[in-house]
Design a protein around this nucleic acid. Structure first.
Length: 599
RNA sequence: GGGGGCGUGGUGAAGUCUGGAGUUCACGCCGGCCUGUCAAGCCGGAGGUCGCGGGUUCAAAUCCCGUCGCUCCCGCCA
């Protein structure tokens, strides 16, 4: 079979052919999308990654025997030689890119047959995702999924184009790193050569890219796989991909400019849309005040209004007590929702679930008066002022929450999304959120980094003296209400870094043990630097109008971290564990035994 | 850790609330007819332990308990 190596399967591709090729003799190969067998003549839609082409198999013209033609089935892989012919005017298919032509076959070879499929690829029904994942290689043949893979590739290509054009150096950093038990749970990998020790898979290349800055790499980027062992969501997988970047002698403005350029290029390539620059910018406080969240969806208004001043002298006890206690009263005008009493009760329940002590709803009547369980507690002046503040029209639904600022923001922010978020994703609304707080204050008063502990404070003195309110040089990029990524100006001064650890309550000893190597590096001439990481899965899924990131990940895992195709995570042989010095806990072995017993 | 949804021939759904023969619809699959269809058409056929286990009942896809899987959300995600 020496001639096999010289065998020609195709001379062109199905989707590349058009009216210009009429009269040419070509050979194409691909999968049979559908077959229409008329007893004599047989039509086959031949599919590959370029598109679909109709092949006409006439038993009198084709050299293949009739038995072969009638034996063709979906997803058979075939190679066809024939003449490109124009279709008659009655036979043009306007729904097909190649609909003006067809291939009249003279020779057909079956390269691979296919078993009947476990599910249909035609996209007319939503197949159970577990089944799709078990047969992902079939799922990915569907044009919609192939388009997602293509879009992802296009996005990464656009990123590289922008950054390569700006002289960035692409550098790979390790994926077997030291565990830093802070932030997300690490994915751990046992070491064979040093039994009892573990690598962690990186949550991000953060410290390595900072080391690269110290190394003299001026501008760095990496398409970096990152790992966080936390619970799954529609937009969260245990492993995900980031565009990680960093620049020396940079401040926030330089980073944001590059981020915009990347976002513009990716949006252009994926959606053919030219975004206006600069992107809208909000400080964290503005975002929280107006939208109740640090990742605002600015495709619609329904902004939160502070009503505290308006109720300063209110006789309504619930509001007065909150205000006396330093809280705030805020509301949104949700517009004409036309909700039933049950619907309104549902909103109250939702507010309670979000942590509110209550939710005041009011519906604006035709005469401008307010229909509400609490209307009788509000003076005429208050009602009038409320109407003015929320710019009401008859039929509008007003939602008011009184509580601590954090609670009000969370509840109204969530209700705003419930009531107003657009269904489609026609609009692409990027927004930069800046001036994040340095720290998050826990219930017990403890401080944790809002971003990460290598983020520079805006003012070191302020940070030391009032860490609870101190601002940082951290920023996010938000797209349609989703956080696409975060970045910051980093600390390049070891004393400042030590101070941040101190404020975080990390002892000098702890800091030295965990990050001593990094603190040392900071002492050898560290340039000021700043950077960012874009979540590529999220960016592509939103730009592709996909409901979750699994649609743009070729081989994702299920919510319990499993891959139905390969069976990971799998048990391993005792011998393997022995080499690693690892034993399975008796409690786990008992569960295994129970699973295996046939009962 | 918690809350919600889903699980019915190969696929997708209806049936479940209000228990009464594995019933129905669409697609796919197999066979037959058919030489211009294009998600071809027409005729015929096969195919299901209603996720799994237990309980209630004369009787369970349907009610109850448990469990597994998938999914959405809260917590978590420096």
């Amino acid at each position: 079979m020496a001639q096999m190596s010289a065998e020609v399967y195709r001379t062109t591709r199905p989707g590349l052919l058009g009216a210009a090729n009429v009269g040419e003799t070509v050979q194409v190969a691909g999968w049979i999308q559908t077959r229409r067998d008329h007893g004599g003549i047989v039509f086959v839609d031949l599919r590959d990654s370029t598109g679909i082409l109709q092949v006409v198999l006439d038993p009198e013209a084709a050299s293949a025997p009739a038995a072969v033609l009638s034996g063709l089935r979906r997803e058979y892989v075939i190679s066809v030689t024939g003449a490109v012919a124009a279709r008659g005017p009655e036979q043009v298919n306007p729904d097909l890119a190649t609909g003006e032509i067809e291939l009249v076959a003279t020779e057909l070879r079956v390269l691979s047959p296919s078993d009947p499929l476990p599910f249909q690829l035609d996209g007319r029904v939503d197949v159970d995702e577990a089944l799709r994942l078990e047969y992902r290689y079939l799922d990915l043949r569907r044009p919609a999924m192939a388009a997602n893979l293509q879009a992802r590739s296009n996005a990464i290509r656009a990123m590289r184009r922008v950054l390569d054009g700006r002289g960035f150096l692409e550098v790979e950093t390790p994926t077997l790193v030291a565990s830093t038990p802070e932030g997300a749970r690490d994915v751990l990998v046992p070491s064979r050569l040093r039994p009892g020790r573990f690598y962690a898979l990186p949550q991000s290349p953060q410290l390595f890219k900072q080391l690269l800055m110290i190394s003299g790499v001026d501008r760095y980027y990496q398409i970096a796989r990152c790992y966080r062992d936390e619970d799954f969501r529609a937009d969260r997988q245990i492993e995900f991909t980031q565009l990680d970047l960093e620049g020396a002698f940079w401040g926030q403005d330089e980073v944001l400019e590059v981020l915009e350029e990347v976002a513009v290029a990716v949006t252009r390539d994926l959606r053919g849309l030219e975004l206006a620059r600069p992107f809208p910018r909000l400080t964290w406080q503005e975002a929280m005040d107006r939208f109740g969240t640090d990742k605002p969806d600015i495709r619609f208004g329904m902004e939160i209004q502070d009503l505290s001043a308006l109720f300063a002298a209110t006789g309504f006890k619930a509001f007065a007590e909150v205000l006396a206690g330093g809280g705030t009263v805020r509301g949104i005008n949700a517009g004409a929702q036309g909700l039933s009493r049950a619907g309104l009760d549902g909103l109250v329940e939702r507010a309670l679930a979000l942590g509110a002590k209550g939710l005041v709803w009011m519906v604006v009547e035709e005469d401008g008066s307010l229909r509400s369980p609490v209307a009788k507690f509000l003076s005429d002046d208050e009602q009038a002022a409320l109407g003015a503040a929320l710019r009401v029209s008859p039929g509008d639904l007003l939602l008011v929450v009184a509580d601590r600022f954090q609670v009000v923001a969370k509840v109204l922010g969530a209700l705003r999304l419930d009531m107003g978020q657009p269904e489609g994703h026609d609009e692409i609304a990027f927004v930069m959120v800046t001036d994040f707080p340095m720290f998050e204050v826990g219930e017990d008063g403890s401080l944790t980094s809002m971003h990460h502990p290598f983020t520079s404070p805006e003012d070191v003195t302020e940070m030391a003296e009032s860490p609870g309110t101190a601002a940082s040089l951290a920023y996010d990029v938000v797209l349609n209400g989703a956080e696409l990524g975060s970045g910051s100006v980093r600390i390049h001064n070891p004393e400042v870094q030590a101070k941040v650890f101190e404020v975080l309550g990390i002892t000098e000893e702890d800091a030295s043990r965990r990050f001593g190597w990094f603190m040392d590096a900071l002492r050898y001439g560290t340039p000021p630097h700043a950077g960012f990481a874009y979540g590529i899965d999220r960016m592509v899924s939103i730009l592709q109008d996909q409901p979750n990131i699994r649609e743009v990940i070729p081989f994702p895992k299920t919510q319990t971290g499993a891959d139905p195709l390969t069976g990971s995570p799998s048990r391993v042989e005792k011998e393997q564990l022995g080499e690693l010095g690892i034993e399975i806990a008796p409690a786990v072995l008992a569960i295994w035994a129970e699973e295996e017993s046939p009962t």
